[in-house]
């Protein structure tokens, strides 16, 4: 198992390196540069050119890339041009919000999607199946920001069931340790703070979960239908096993294999795709920050954030591969 993990980590290195090359040149393809965002509008062309020179942006591009990589290898991701703080510091401030949101969305998607997909498969052709299939189509088609707006309007503003913005109620004095508000609340036993943070996660979590939920419902349904037709399920029936045993040990354990892979792929898209939901609920995660960085051509932030997200994504998929190999002995590497 250790060798398997080591090999997977090592194969991730060239992937991330390739991504860094691609990103570096891609970001530079954006027209304009930070000199427009950093200097006032009435700055002269000479002033802008001078700023570019001092920032080293006029040096040969390969030299700039070399400098970037050298810094990176020393653990230095540069400083944000907008805020003047190190990129890594900025990331650690913004990331918990997005991670909590993504985790909440995935929790919704898995907790609703897998049972719903299973029931739809079992009652194939029935009303629940039609609802699941139709609903998931709707979930995939509805733009996330639109759904976020509707949820906010109905459940926060009209019914007042959930807070409509931010990660925590204003004025709440909570202890900060990790920046993950729910985790902090639990760790410090400030239960009301944890509950408050959780309530703030419900609506944005639901909005963000729509696409992964739809995908998981569909995949679970298709996978369960396939497994139900397998000979080993008939064998389990022939043994007279209880329906619950057949469901968990023989049907779901096999049907979950493709779904687990999908969960890994989807979680990456949640981290990178939370920006619209974050802005509707003024959540202040990495999405908003990356958007702002794009506007101001904040090269170090763009590069650093996307590279870290890619690394997190690689790690999540490594975890998925490990859990997959625990679920399926056929892919286990001895």
């Amino acid at each position: 198992m250790l060798r398997f993990i080591t090999r997977r980590v090592l194969t991730a290195v060239p992937t991330l390196f390739g991504l860094s090359v691609l990103l570096f040149f891609w970001v530079r393809l954006l027209p304009g540069g930070p000199e427009y965002a950093l200097l006032p509008e009435d700055a002269s062309a000479e002033q802008r050119a001078a700023l570019r020179r001092t920032m080293g942006l006029d040096d040969p591009i390969l030299e700039q890339y070399g400098r970037f990589v050298l810094q990176l290898l020393q653990g230095d991701m540069g400083t944000s041009l907008q805020t003047g703080r190190p990129v890594l510091t900025e990331f650690l401030i913004k990331f918990p919000a997005t991670a909590e949101l993504a985790a909440m969305a995935m929790l919704f998607a898995v907790a609703i999607g897998i049972p719903l997909g299973y029931l739809a498969a079992r009652r194939r052709g029935g009303p629940l199946d039609a609802l699941a299939v139709g609903g998931s189509l709707l979930g995939i088609c509805t733009p996330v920001f639109f759904l976020a707006f509707v949820l906010k309007l109905v459940f926060a503003e009209q019914l007042g069931l959930f807070p409509s913005a931010f990660r925590q109620s204003p004025g709440l004095d909570a202890t900060r340790i990790t920046g993950f508000f729910v985790v902090d609340g639990i760790a410090t036993r400030e239960w009301d703070a944890a509950a408050d943070a959780l309530m703030h996660l419900v609506l944005p979590g639901l909005a963000l979960s729509s696409i992964p939920l739809a995908v998981i419902v569909r995949m679970t349904r298709a996978s369960v239908i396939e497994v139900l037709g397998e000979d080993y399920v008939r064998t389990a029936e022939a043994k007279g096993l209880h329906r619950g045993t057949i469901r968990t040990r023989h049907v779901l354990r096999n049907a979950m294999l493709p779904v687990v892979t999908a969960i890994g792929l989807l979680s990456g898209s949640l981290l990178a795709g939370a920006v619209l939901t974050e802005s509707v609920f003024a959540f202040g995660g990495i999405g908003e920050f990356i958007y702002a960085a794009t506007q101001t051509r904040d090269y170090p932030v763009l590069l650093g954030f996307i590279l870290i997200i890619a690394t997190v994504y690689v790690l999540i998929n490594l975890l998925v591969d490990i859990s997959y190999s625990l679920l399926d002995p056929r892919v286990r590497v001895s």
Binding site: Y232, R253, N254, R330
Partner: peptide, 15 residues
């Protein structure tokens, strides 16, 4: 009890 035809597909691969 019953013994089936194709032993590979009749056994659960992950148990």
């Amino acid at each position: 009890a019953m013994v089936f035809q194709d032993p590979l597909s009749s056994l659960n691969p992950v148990v």
